[in-house]
Simulated scan of single mutants.
Amino acid sequence: MTTFTLADVRERTYKSRDAWWTVFLVDPLASRLVVWTANRTDITPNQITFGAGVLGAGSAAAFAMGSWPWLVLGAVLFHLSFVLDCMDGKIARLKGTGSVFGAWVDFVFDRIRFFGCMMALLVGQWAVTGQAVYLLLAPVAVFVDLLRYLNGAQVAKTRQSMREKLREAAAGREVDADVADPESTDPSGGAAAEPEDGGEEGGERVVFMEEALREDPSLDREQVYARARAEGARVVDVHAGFSERMGWYERLRRSLLRSRVRPHLFSGIEFEMFVCVVAPLTAVLSAVWPGTTLIVAVTVLSCAALLAFELAIVYKLWMATRDFTRELARLQHRRA
C-alpha cells in the first residue's frame, strides 16, 4: 500500500499560485488531513465533496438562527466545509482518482453551498432585526458573485482565442484580428486558411509570456525571453502594455508568488470567505454591545473589492487586445 507524505501532497496537489486565503488559512490544515485520509481510509473525493455539502447545510442552518453564537458556529462550519472542498481535489490528484463528473459535482456543490449560506445569513438577519437592508443586500451579493463567474469565463475564452490566432499566424496561416466572439467553436474564429508551404512545420515557434509565467512563477519576463532565445522561439507578450504601465504590478507579482499567492488578491474565494466567515464572526460584538455587527459593512466592502478586481481584469484584457492586434500585424508582416 502506498504511503503518502506531506511532501507528496505539496508537490502533487499544490497549485503554483493560489488565493491567499487558501495558501495561509486552508492548505496548512487541509494538506495534513489529506495525508491522514489518504493513508488510513478509503474515502473517495466524491464522499468528501458530500461531506463538505453536509457541513455547508449545517452552516446555513446556523446562519438562519440569527443570534451571535449561531453566527459564529455557522462561520466555523463554512470554513471547515471549504477545507473539505479543497481536500477532495487534492486526494483526487494525489491518488489519480479524479474524474470529469467529479469536477462537475465539486463545482455545483460549491455554488449551492455558498448561495445557500449567503442567503441564510442575510435573510436570517432580516428576520431577526427587521432591517430591510439585509434583503436589499442579498440580490446585490448574488449579482456580484454571478458577474465574476461570467466575466472570468469570457475573459478566459477571449485570451484563448487570442493565443490560438497568434499560433495560427506564426504557423503561416491567414487570420483576422477579430476576437469578439469567444463563443466560437473554432478557436481561431473560423477565419484561418490552410497553411501555406512550410506552414506548421516551417512556422515560427511561439512562447506565450503568460503561459510561461503561469507554468513557472519563479521566472521573470527577462528570463522567459532569454530561455526562448536559447530555444530559437519567439516570445509573444500580449500583456506587455499593461506591464509597462503598471511596473509595480510585476514587483508585487514576484513578491507574492514566492509564497504561491496570486496577485488577484480579492477573488471569488476571498469573497465567499469574507461574506460567510468574516462577516458573521463580527457578530461577537453583540456579546459586548447588543445588536452591533458589521455584517452589512463587511458584505458591502467585499462586493466593492470584488468588483474593483474584476474591473482590473477587464482593463488588463483591454490592454492585451491592443497588444494582440499589434503582435498579429507583426507576425503577418513577417510572413508577407
Score class of each variant (00 low, 15 high):
residue 133 V to M: 12
residue 134 Y to M: 08
residue 134 Y to F: 15
residue 135 L to C: 09
residue 136 L to Q: 12
residue 136 L to C: 12
residue 136 L to A: 15
residue 138 A to L: 10
residue 140 V to K: 01
residue 140 V to R: 02
residue 140 V to F: 05
residue 141 A to E: 07
residue 141 A to N: 04
residue 141 A to K: 01
residue 142 V to H: 06
residue 142 V to K: 04
residue 143 F to I: 07
residue 143 F to C: 05
residue 144 V to N: 03
residue 145 D to L: 09
residue 145 D to F: 11
residue 146 L to F: 09
residue 147 L to E: 13
residue 147 L to D: 11
residue 148 R to Y: 11
residue 148 R to N: 12
residue 149 Y to G: 13
residue 149 Y to H: 15
residue 149 Y to M: 15
residue 150 L to Y: 11
residue 152 G to E: 06
residue 152 G to Q: 04
residue 153 A to V: 02
residue 153 A to L: 05
residue 154 Q to D: 01
residue 155 V to D: 12
residue 156 A to C: 01
residue 159 R to W: 08
residue 160 Q to N: 04
residue 160 Q to I: 00
residue 160 Q to C: 00
residue 161 S to E: 02
residue 163 R to K: 12
residue 164 E to S: 14
residue 164 E to Q: 11
residue 164 E to C: 12
residue 166 L to E: 02
residue 167 R to L: 05
residue 167 R to N: 02
residue 168 E to C: 02
residue 168 E to A: 10
residue 169 A to W: 01
residue 170 A to R: 08
residue 170 A to P: 04
residue 171 A to R: 13
residue 172 G to T: 05
residue 172 G to I: 06
residue 173 R to I: 03
residue 173 R to V: 03
residue 174 E to S: 12
residue 175 V to R: 06
residue 175 V to P: 04
residue 175 V to T: 07
residue 176 D to K: 05
residue 176 D to M: 03
